[in-house]
Design a protein around this nucleic acid. Structure first.
Lengths: 229, 229
DNA sequence: ACCTTGTTTACACCTTTTTTACATCAACTG
DNA sequence: CAGTTGATGTAAAAAAGGTGTAAACAAGGT
C-alpha cells in the first residue's frame, strides 16, 4: 500500500519507542521522519510534505491535544494517536479534536502497520513512487528530487524545490497564498506573501519558456496560484 | 459532526447488540439502517445511499472478511469493524482487506461514537472535494475553484467566482438582491445593488451562449435573480 | 573572504473593483 | 395604446489593490 514517496512523521519523545515505530514503518517502504517534541513536529509538517502523523500524546513540551488542535488549523494530514492512556474519555477527546485513529500502548507492531496502511489508503493526494511528473520539456522526479528541462538538469534551491513540489502535488487546484506560505515557510509567515512572489518569479525564470507569459504556474489574482501542465 | 442526512448501516446478527449500536448512533443524529445478515447488508448498500458501514465480523450466513472484499469491489464506503476476536492477525486481515477501523468487543459506546464521527468527518471531506456542478456546456468545480465552458477554462475574478458559487449553491431558488449582496459583498452593501447588475452581466458574458437572452442566470424583476440549469 | 541561498525593499506595471453615465427594458397608468 | 416610471443592462472611466522584477542586504557554509 505505502510506497517510497510516502512520508510519515513520528512524534514521540522516548527514543526507544521512536526507533521501534520508525523501523516498523520502514519495513513498509515509508520514509519515516522523526521529532522528539511537539514544536519540532509542527515545524516538520510545515516544512516537509508529510502524508501521515503518528503522535504520542505524552510529550514533554506540550499537551498532545493542543498539538492536534494547532495542526488542524492549517493541515488536514491524517493523525494516528499512540497513548498509554486507555480511558475512554481520552480517546473521545483526541478523536473529536481531529485525530483519525487511536491506538493504546502496548500495541502490536503488526496492528500498527495495518492501521497505517488503512489510513494511507484513504489519503487522496498521495504521490506515486518514482512517478516523474512531466509537463512540456520539464520533468520533476519527486523521489529523486531532480528537475530537468530539455534533458538538462535544472538546479533548484531548497525553497524553490519545496515550492515546486507543493505545486506539483496540487496540480490543477487553486492554491491560496496562505496555503502555500504554510506549506513552504511554515505557520507564522502567512502574511509575508511577497516571499511567494519572489520565488514564483524564480521558478518561472527557470522553468517557463517565456517567464513573462507563464504556461504552467498561473496567477489567480487576489487568491494565489495554480499549477497546470 | 454528523447530521440528519447521514445514513449509517449496522450489519450485526445479534438483535440486542444491533439495537444498542443503533441507539448510540441515533443520539448523534444519524439515520441508522439495519441488517442481520451479510447478504442483506450488501443489498442495502447497493440500494440506499450509505455513508458508513458498521460490520460485525461474526455473521451467520457469510464470513465477514469476504463481505468486506465483496463490498470493496464496487464501493469505497468507510467500514468500521466490530469483533469479539482480539487477535492481532484478525485485525490486520480486516484492515488490509479494506476496513477503515477495527473495534474489539466489549467496547464503550462513547468510543464507538467518537470513531464514527472521525470516519464520517473524513468521508465528508471526500464528498466535498468531488462536487462538480454541470449545466449545459459549463462545469463548476467548487473544490478546485475552476470553471470550464465547452472544455476550455473560463477565467473568473474573485467576485465573479464568489457570486457564481452562491448562485450554484442556491440552484433553482429565487435569490433576492439583498441576499446576494450580503453573501458576496458582505453586510453594509445591501443598498449598492448596481454592483450586482455589473457582475451578473459579466458572468452572463462569460458563461451564456447569448448574453442578451440568458438561459442560466435569469432575472426576477423587482426581486433578484434565479439560477436555473 | 567568497559563494550560494534566503530575505527584504522599492517601484513599475497590470488586474480587479468601484464608480459613473447612459441606454434599454418591462410594467403600469391615464 | 402611448407615455411615464422604475428597474435593469452595458460600457467605459477612475480608483484601489495586487503582482512582477530587479537589486541590495543578510546569513550561513566552504
Amino acid at each position: 500500500m505505502s510506497d517510497a514517496a510516502t512520508a510519515v512523521l513520528v512524534v514521540e519523545d522516548e527514543p526507544q519507542i521512536r526507533r521501534f515505530v520508525c523501523n516498523a514503518l520502514r519495513d513498509d517502504q515509508c520514509q519515516a521522519l522523526e521529532a522528539g517534541t511537539a514544536t519540532g513536529g509542527l515545524e516538520i509538517v510545515a516544512r516537509e510534505p508529510v502524508h501521515l502523523v503518528i503522535l504520542d500524546l505524552g510529550l514533554p513540551d506540550r499537551d498532545g491535544i493542543s498539538f492536534i488542535r494547532d495542526l488542524r488549523n492549517w493541515s488536514a494530514v491524517p493523525i494516528l494517536v499512540l497513548s498509554a492512556r486507555s480511558a475512554e474519555q481520552d480517546k473521545i477527546e483526541a478523536l473529536d479534536t481531529g485525530a483519525d485513529d487511536y491506538l493504546t500502548k502496548p500495541f502490536g507492531v503488526g496492528e500498527l502497520r495495518a492501521r497505517v496502511r488503512a489510513l494511507l489508503r484513504r489519503q487522496q493526494q498521495r504521490v506515486d513512487a518514482g512517478a516523474v511528473h512531466v509537463f512540456g520539456d520539464v520533468a520533476v522526479d519527486l523521489s529523486r528530487r531532480i528537475v530537468t528541462r530539455a534533458g538538462a538538469e535544472v538546479h533548484l534551491t531548497q525553497r524553490e524545490y519545496h515550492l515546486l513540489a507543493v505545486m506539483v502535488a496540487n496540480t490543477g487546484r487553486v492554491m491560496t497564498q496562505r496555503y502555500l506560505m504554510n506549506q513552504v515557510w511554515g505557520p507564522g509567515h502567512s502574511q509575508d506573501s511577497h516571499y511567494l512572489r519572489v520565488y514564483v518569479g524564480r521558478l518561472r525564470q527557470k522553468l517557463e519558456a517565456d517567464p513573462t507569459q507563464p504556461h504552467y504556474i498561473l496567477t489567480e489574482t487576489g487568491i494565489g496560484y495554480r499549477f497546470q501542465p
